[in-house]
Design a protein around this nucleic acid. Sequence first.
DNA 1: TAGATTGTTAATCGATTAACAATC
DNA 2: TAGATTGTTAATCGATTAACAATC
Lengths: 205, 205
Amino acid sequence: MGSADIPTPVIRRLPLYLRALMFLLDEAQEIISSEELGKKLGISPAQIRKDLSCFGEFGKQGTGYEIKHLREQLKRILKVDREWGIALVGAGALGHAIAHYEGFKNRGFYIAAILDNDPQKIGKKIGDLEVMDSRLLPEVVREMGLQVAIIAVPTSEARKVADALIASGIKAIINYAPITLNVPPGVQIRCIDPVTRLQNMTYYL
Amino acid sequence: MGSADIPTPVIRRLPLYLRALMFLLDEAQEIISSEELGKKLGISPAQIRKDLSCFGEFGKQGTGYEIKHLREQLKRILKVDREWGIALVGAGALGHAIAHYEGFKNRGFYIAAILDNDPQKIGKKIGDLEVMDSRLLPEVVREMGLQVAIIAVPTSEARKVADALIASGIKAIINYAPITLNVPPGVQIRCIDPVTRLQNMTYYL
DNA sequence: TAGATTGTTAATCGATTAACAATC
DNA sequence: TAGATTGTTAATCGATTAACAATC
């Protein structure tokens, strides 16, 4: 690959830029400067320019950035210029909330399948999708060509589910169980645990 | 205050240490070395020792850390050696999932009140709590002495809700709407947006 | 004591910021 | 052109790591 190694903090910020640009486009704004974008995001303008310069020259001196163009570039860089299907494992309250979440729309993702191991839940419909038996995971992942999954099961089952996902060929996982899961190289994982975020804030109170 | 300024990455890691220690105690482990803890968390042992040394000397040379003792120290440092009541705003699918979440238990938090502006939802019960009218927010926050809140409303309402929370005296906010909210100094805010996390991972695929 | 692991210092590494020439 | 803002360099700042004396 021609692309040099980009610092991870840069990659963490790009989705925030993209999110802000999508929002601005909804409000029909066409151009934005690094100054204005920085103010909206609480990030320094120099930081934004430096981050973007890792990938090319997307702005125009004296003017700023054409929002639609920058959005397309960011989508391409982040590989969300396509739609990734997600395997959602867990059809409890959290699974329902994720299945009904509006925020995936136009951001590169959709729920492709919902799985659970509870016979009470298997076969039930959530929105347009029928909850499938967890045991079908390998087939579902292969047949639908899924690479992304979300773990929304109880903590006690999260490790087992992660192993099954990885064995099935999933390459990117969002884990909602409050536990650190170790994954092999080549597999991405991120944990969403509101309590660690809360504990982080209370330190400062 | 006697406490010097602690680097923010340190404060971000402490809740992870605490979470791992709680888990180990459940499994009846009593002692752990920075080496072993680091392996579990994917963090270098030197990092862990350095982080902890910001606050005191909690270990014993040649042995490691007494887990129960370190847990108590971390709880104290993070101010979760008490229980913080949370004002949960939004009683939709996400609000339900949060209200039923088991993960708050023993980690310093509980849902103290649930509010919504939808007459259809007001008065309905979620677990033990009755959904209250959002307009009662200032009274609820004051009377219950709440400092922490969670925003689980549609994106279009998030800004308004955040302003109301801050006006009511809330000092720490978890925002589930995929939008950057600007808050005044002295108020902590963290955004939980699974899609930015997903977009971060797809970059690496 | 011998072995192990901490707490801490110094060195390295990496990220952010300031500043300005380039240029629209 | 004059004014504005980018892209980029160099300087600053901060965080991580390596190494080891202290000590249990």
